[in-house]
C-alpha cells in the first residue's frame, strides 16, 4: 500500500497558566505565575493510504485539530515524527501546501467583505496557477458546487452552508492530493450538511483526493469515511473500519418527538427505551441491533406529530463505551 501520511509517536504539549479564582488568585498569579503542561497529543501513531477517506473523531479538546494543524505544518510538535506525501510538514510547509488543502469549519479563508470569486482570483496568485488552467478549474468547480448564483455576493451575506461550499471549492483550485477538513459541517443545518458530505464524497471518488476529516458529528463519518480514528485526551482509543465502529458502538439512535396534543399515550415499542417524557414531547432510544429506525418511525407516525428528529448518541457516550469495552477486555486478559 502507498502511505501518504505516516505519523509516529507524535506528541504536542502546550503550557498553560494556572490561576486560582477570585482577586487573591489574580494577585497570586501576577506575583508568582504558575504554569502547567497540557498534553494535546500524547504520542499518536497512524498511517493513511492514498485515496483513503479517514475520519478523526472525538469530543472537544481531544486533539483532532492539533493533529491536523501539525500535519499541515501550522504547529510544531514537541516530539515525534510525521511525513505527509514524503515531506515533514513543519520543515517543508510551503512545498507541502502546494499539494494539500485545509478547510477549517470555524476559520474562513474567504474575504469577508468581498464576493468569493475575488478570493478565488487571489488564491490563483498565491498558488501561482497559470491563468488558463485556473479559469478552467474555477469554472468546473463553480458548476460542480453550484456556485454560479453566489459568486457575485459578498461573503458576509452568504449563509453558513453557502459559505462552506465556497470554502471547499476555493481549497480545490490547485488540485490538492490531500484535503484536510477540520469540522466542515459545524453549525450547518441538515440539508447543508448533506450537500457538503455529498461533495466531499464525490471528490474522493472521482478525483482520488485523499480526505482526512475531523468531526464530533458521528453522521460525518458514517456518510463519508471507511476508516475512523477515535481520539480522546490526545490518545488514540480506536482505529478501525467505520463498519466495525458502527457494529460495536453505534448501536443506538435517539429519536426526539414533539406532539401537537398534550398527554398522548405512546404506543408500546419493542427495543425502544423512553429516556424522557413531557406533556408535548418525548426522547426515545432505539437499539438498532434489534430494530430498524424506520420501523419505529412508522409506528410513531400514527401519533399527532409536530416534529421528529433522529440523532446519533453523543460522541462522549460513544467514547465512554469504547473505553468501557477496552477496560473490560483488559480485565479479561489480566483476570484469568
Amino acid at each position: 500500500m502507498n502511505a501518504i501520511v505516516e505519523v509516529h509517536a507524535l506528541r504536542k504539549e502546550f503550557r498553560r497558566r494556572v490561576r486560582a479564582s477570585g482577586i487573591r488568585g489574580v494577585l497570586q498569579s501576577f506575583a508568582s505565575p504558575r504554569q502547567e503542561t497540557v498534553v494535546a497529543l500524547g504520542g499518536i501513531d497512524f498511517r493513511m493510504e492514498a485515496g483513503e477517506s479517514l475520519a478523526l473523531i472525538g469530543p472537544n479538546g481531544a486533539g483532532k485539530s492539533t493533529t491536523i494543524k501539525t500535519l499541515t505544518g501550522i504547529l510544531h510538535p514537541t516530539s515525534g515524527t510525521a511525513t505527509v506525501l514524503g515531506m515533514v510538514p513543519w520543515k517543508q510547509r510551503t512545498q507541502l501546501a502546494l499539494q494539500l488543502a485545509t478547510v477549517f469549519g470555524q476559520r474562513s479563508q474567504l474575504w469577508f467583505h468581498l464576493p468569493a470569486g475575488e478570493t478565488f482570483d487571489l488564491l490563483a496568485h498565491i498558488y501561482e496557477l497559470p491563468r488558463a488552467e485556473y479559469r478552467a478549474r474555477r469554472d468546473e468547480l463553480i458548476e460542480r458546487f453550484d456556485l454560479g448564483p453566489l459568486l457575485g455576493t459578498s461573503v458576509r451575506k452568504l449563509s453558513l452552508g453557502q459559505r462552506m461550499r465556497c470554502e471547499i471549492a476555493a481549497s480545490l483550485l490547485h488540485r490538492p492530493r490531500i484535503l484536510f477538513l477540520d469540522e466542515p459541517t459545524i453549525g450547518l443545518d441538515v440539508i447543508a450538511k448533506q450537500t457538503i458530505r455529498e461533495l466531499i464524497r464525490e471528490l474522493n471518488r472521482n478525483e482520488g483526493v485523499s480526505v482526512l476529516l475531523t468531526s464530533h458529528d458521528a453522521g460525518d463519518i458514517e456518510h463519508l469515511c471507511k476508516r475512523v480514528i477515535v481520539i480522546n485526551h490526545g490518545v488514540i482509543a480506536f482505529d478501525d473500519r467505520v463498519s466495525t465502529l458502527r457494529r460495536r458502538h453505534l448501536q443506538k439512535k435517539v429519536i426526539r418527538i414533539r406532539l401537537n396534543e398534550s398527554s398522548v399515550t405512546l404506543p408500546a415499542l419493542a427495543h425502544v427505551e423512553v429516556l424522557s417524557r413531557s406533556d408535548y414531547g418525548a426522547k426515545l432510544e432505539v437499539d438498532t441491533r434489534e430494530r430498524a429506525v424506520a420501523e419505529v418511525m412508522a409506528e410513531l407516525g400514527t401519533l399527532p406529530l409536530a416534529d421528529i428528529t433522529i440523532e446519533d448518541p453523543p460522541m462522549e457516550e460513544i467514547i465512554a463505551e469504547i473505553y468501557a469495552a477496552r477496560s473490560t477486555a483488559a480485565r479479561g486478559v489480566s483476570e484469568p
Binding site: S65, L75, H76, Q106, R107, S108, W111, F112, H113, V155
Partner: peptide, 14 residues
C-alpha cells in the same frame, strides 16, 4: 513561530 499555539476562535478574513 516555533512557539505559535494557534487557537479555535471562529474567524473570517476582513
Amino acid at each position: 513561530l516555533r512557539r505559535y499555539e494557534s487557537g479555535n476562535l471562529v474567524l473570517t478574513r476582513q
